[in-house]
């Protein structure tokens, strides 16, 4: 009786360990509609279908495993078309992130091409901008906390904090969906980052511009939330696909 129990628990443990060792944790995100704060060309809600998202951004250790498997993406082999010169500069060498980088800190200094390839090699993809923003509007308790002043202050205070990119993943709050680090750690690539128009070409976002730049005297929660989102969209709008910077990482998503 006793040994049988032991054997069963042993096998259960074994199964659990192998399962968790192989799979990077993802959580299901239930689809829905929302009105993106900025970059929306109409005020109509955007529909996001149900999908799954990585709980954490991709880490140095995970990216190292990828580079070892696909040496074309190592620092010295990476093609100029796919990444600029600062690609993985913080690493010690092609196949070592060195002592100055934590294994569980988010990988940064990666281009959009590299991030996209990484996710494809895991059988996943980069989240779309709408998907990312949809998950990012949740705080600990609510799926949409954008009108909460405290939530917006938290996001904006992070924008002012230096060097959060060297922190380990999973130390910011766990949001409504069970996802960590949407705010407070690094900026993240999205699949369609290059669909943003903040310059003269944007035709229908003038209204939002006015809201942002000609704010009335008082700053309320809505202004803060617009500002926080504006920062993200403006940052994405300034990117090119081969750019790499030390505060920009990524995570993957998948259709169900």
């Amino acid at each position: 009786m006793f040994p049988l129990k032991k054997i069963i628990t042993f096998f259960l443990l074994l199964i659990c360990v192998t399962l968790f060792a192989q799979e990077v944790k993802m959580v299901p995100i239930k689809g829905g509609t929302f009105v993106p704060l900025y970059g929306a060309t109409t005020k109509k809600p955007v529909r996001v279908a149900s999908f799954s998202m990585d709980v954490y951004p991709v880490t140095n250790a995970q990216y190292l495993a990828f580079v070892k498997k696909y040496p074309d993406y190592s620092r010295s082999k990476m093609k100029g078309l796919y990444a600029d010169k600062s690609y993985l500069t913080q690493w010690e060498s092609d196949f070592s992130y060195g002592k100055n980088n934590l294994s569980n800190a988010p990988i940064t200094n990666v281009s959009w091409f590299a991030a996209k390839k990484y996710c494809e090699c895991q059988g996943k993809r980069l989240p779309t901008m709408d998907e990312w923003e949809y998950v990012a509007m949740a705080d600990e308790k609510r799926s949409d906390a954008r009108t909460k002043e405290e939530f917006n202050r938290y996001i904006l205070s992070w924008y002012e904090k230096p060097k959060t990119y060297s922190n380990p993943v999973g130390q910011t709050f766990k949001n409504y969906w069970g996802v960590y680090d949407m705010h407070g750690l690094v900026w993240e690539w999205t699949a369609d980052f290059n669909s943003i128009f903040l310059s003269g070409e944007s035709r229908k976002d003038k209204d939002t511009d006015k809201n942002l730049f000609c704010g009335s005297g008082s700053v309320n929660a809505t202004d803060l939330m617009n500002y926080a989102a504006f920062m993200r969209y403006a940052f994405r709008g300034s990117l090119k696909a081969n750019y790499t910077t030390k505060n920009l990482g990524f995570r993957c998503a998948s259709d169900k």
Partner: peptide, 24 residues
């Protein structure tokens, strides 16, 4: 197409059926 646009530094977004906003 999205990848190719990324290489050309062309931004585009579908804003309605049969209507896109795009870099020239």
């Amino acid at each position: 197409t999205r990848e190719f646009a990324a290489v050309l530094a062309v931004n585009y977004k579908k804003i309605a059926p049969l209507e896109f906003s795009h870099s020239n």
